[in-house]
Amino acid sequence: MSGHSTHENRHVVSFKTYLATGTALLILTAATVGVSFIKLGGWNAIAAVGIACLKAILVAFVFMHLLYDKKIFLVIFSVAIIFLTIFLALTMFDILSRGEIYPDYEEPIEKNAVIYKKAEPAPTGEPVEDSTPKNH
């Protein structure tokens, strides 16, 4: 590892490393914008999240010094990511399998809410108020 160190023997990351990381982050930003214009179906979302993860790793390891600092900080951060993944995965297992149990899952929560009224064209010859049942 090159570079200086401070009074506390803390590693000082070189200017070049910071600049290279910043440049990489900007290039990856251009890549994520570029990829979003290509039709890849489901792969678009995977590419977007994948590039975002790569950028986050660069920020965490270089800018936030996880690569150079005490490993316990990396453990703490990993715990956050692991529990977020569990949260997301278990929620999606639930959400994506609900259609098998409740067939009406796809329908809007409040069909009679005001905001849906204008989306539906009013039946001809009838006032809009009478076309949907009053909901108190």
């Binding site: 994520t32 979003s36 179906g41 678009n44 590419a47 977007a48 975002a52 986050a56 920020v59």
Partner: peptide, 12 residues
């Protein structure tokens, strides 16, 4: 923001 940007602005 690195995550918010592609998830909100760049839905393919």
């Amino acid at each position: 923001w690195i995550f918010l940007f592609p998830l909100l602005y760049l839905i393919g």
